[in-house]
Design a protein around this nucleic acid. Structure first.
Lengths: 341, 341
DNA sequence: AATTTATTCTAAAACGTTTTCGTTTTTTAG
DNA sequence: CTAAAAAACGAAAACGTTTTAGAATAAATT
């Protein structure tokens, strides 16, 4: 491995000059800069990030923290898409991405914050996680630049999907298609779920729809088993809904299975809608009606704002960034207006 | 940030002793070790990976290289699952994972090898990529420990899915269900595809099935559009197949759409099968018959062997590790034996 | 008690950078 | 042509570790 020392020797200049030439500092002549750079290429020199990080306290390395509870994590469609976009964005700015080790099984394990400091991460994006975890709080309260995804902390940059608008759009669309008996199987207790539930009720009220208590059920996200059973319960009601909303697209398929098992058809006999807009939803029949979250934008904005915070901490305004989703109409919500005629 | 210097001062010992105590070296007494460790906790000391890496040339950091061409990458189900398992495994051994920057758009961009060296990565896993890329070859030919996934290089550890057995199992199953007219829409030209095609032909020959040339088509992986059109072509044949195999599950749904658009039913009128065993395939009806690749094992074995290579380079035997998949029968291949009776 | 041996510790160099501050060289002004 | 100012360069310290070689202390052997 050729170092600056070797390069300096080959150029007959000092190490300091080499460093400055490579970093395009002002106090070295254009001629020497050129010469050093040429020689660097020639010798195949490239810097050592560890040494650089040690000296500058900047690693050009951004961490991503997420906990892959039960089959989630990287294989979680929403998160994978956000991460993909995030990665693409920071790479353009010449950062690398490290997934911070969140295995708590290891013996001498550090906290998230300790690990971030240990690795000298310039910033951390936090997603898909239990935001009430004390270790997460510790990290968020630290001096390390942080952006949270789909959760808002005070004094921290957050990028969140507009679940309020999303749910409103969805319910409104379903309403416009003539539905008045709308059930909602929501996900487990997170701020995302809370936003959606609250928006669901608000919108229903505004539209003058009454929601019976037993139209509201709970299942975990991506839990097809759960939605299967909750759907059965809904179908068993004396006055069943004409449309069921699910926690997410994936879970929605569990519901569809239940419906079909009862000999009912989607959407002819009962309408359904998911949430997320996963890719496969647009490629299988019937095309699932859903709110397509703009994962590309979420990932990109998280990255851009985190980098801004890292590079210009003072001039970055701290506020939540809300990214709107988009209604994908699909074909699982039937227009039942004619029937009413 | 409290460093070893501070810790040494607080303990009234030298920096060297602190270092050794923390690293559990033999030439420091149990008493001092205990004392140093206690004090370290007290002061909230933890090491600086950059300094450590600089000194030891070991980063405890493993890189993953993959190129996310067109919608693939992280959102690619197969790869995401492999990566997830890979990550979990290395975390248990206290490594971190960095996704190596493969953006070629950046101006002063380095080659993959340069970037790996720059970051001081202890090893690199390579997947989902064009293995003929000169930069990939350069990396593979370097002295950095490398494991390739689903591709075999000479003198390098590789973990590959057993596509030969997988395809054989699949074709044999379809054969046993009575099918003799089997079409295969294969993916684009990669070693994986080659293995599958070759195994397809071999198995057919062994079973005494003749495969007309126009039963073999090509579409890109995960390309529902492509499989849609190829399927239409197959259905237009004067003697259409009774079963169609697809490049992967995702693409298979494109085929199913085409079939249904023709007013045909799966599997009553025509049987289909995918490849991969993506999660959703088991949760929607009809359940797609497929070969479930053991992504958990692939990721884990890649990680374990890479770490072995890093930590014990001499005693690690270099050979391809073949991971078998498993036939998932699903419900998209109809048993047509009775018809023949 | 003197020597050897084993144990525990430390000083100092090194890893590859960046950066401060001082020195030398070149340019400009008078 | 000299003096002052500006530009270009270099010496050396520092970042936080690990490691080598040797020093000091304690224990064991004659």
């Amino acid at each position: 491995m050729v170092s600056m020392k070797d390069l300096a020797a080959a150029c007959n200049v000092s190490i300091a000059t080499v460093s400055k030439a490579l970093n395009d500092q002002h106090d070295v002549s254009a001629k020497t800069k050129e010469m050093v750079r040429k020689k660097a290429k020639e010798l195949g020199y490239f810097p050592n990030s560890a040494a650089k990080a040690l000296k500058t306290n900047r690693s050009h390395n951004i961490g991503v923290l997420f906990v892959d509870e039960a089959q989630s994590g990287l294989t979680h469609d929403f998160f994978a898409n956000v991460l993909d976009s995030f990665k693409r964005t920071i790479e353009l700015r010449d950062y690398d991405l490290t997934l911070v080790n969140c295995s708590k099984t290891h013996s001498g394990s550090m906290t998230y914050l300790e690990r971030a400091r240990y690795r000298g991460l310039d910033g951390v994006a936090i997603a898909c996680i239990d935001f009430r975890d004390p270790e997460v709080i510790e990290l968020v309260d630290s001096s390390i630049p942080v952006v949270t995804i789909d959760y808002i902390f005070n004094n921290r940059i957050a990028v969140i999907s507009d679940n309020v608008k999303g749910m409103r759009d969805l319910v409104t669309y379903v309403y416009e298609m003539g539905h008045r008996k709308i059930a909602y199987i929501h996900g487990n207790d997170t701020s995302v779920t809370q936003a959606r539930i609250s928006s669901f009720y608000t919108t229903c009220t505004q539209l003058g729809i009454e929601v019976p208590e037993d139209y509201i059920k709970r299942a975990d996200y991506r839990d097809t088993e759960g939605t299967y059973h909750r759907t059965m319960e809904l179908l068993d009601l004396s006055d069943p809904p004409t449309c069921i909303l699910y926690p997410d697209d994936f879970a929605g398929f569990g519901g569809i299975n239940a419906i079909r098992e009862r000999g009912l058809r989607v959407p002819e006999d009962i309408s359904v809608a998911g949430y997320d807009g996963i890719r496969i939803g647009r490629h299988i029949e019937p095309k699932l009606t859903t709110i397509r979250q703009d994962t590309e934008s979420i990932g990109r904005q998280a990255a851009e704002n985190l980098i801004k915070l890292i590079e210009h901490p003072r001039s970055t305004i701290i506020r939540p960034i809300v990214v709107e989703g988009e209604l994908y109409k699909g074909s699982t919500v039937k227009d039942i207006n004619r029937i009413a005629e």
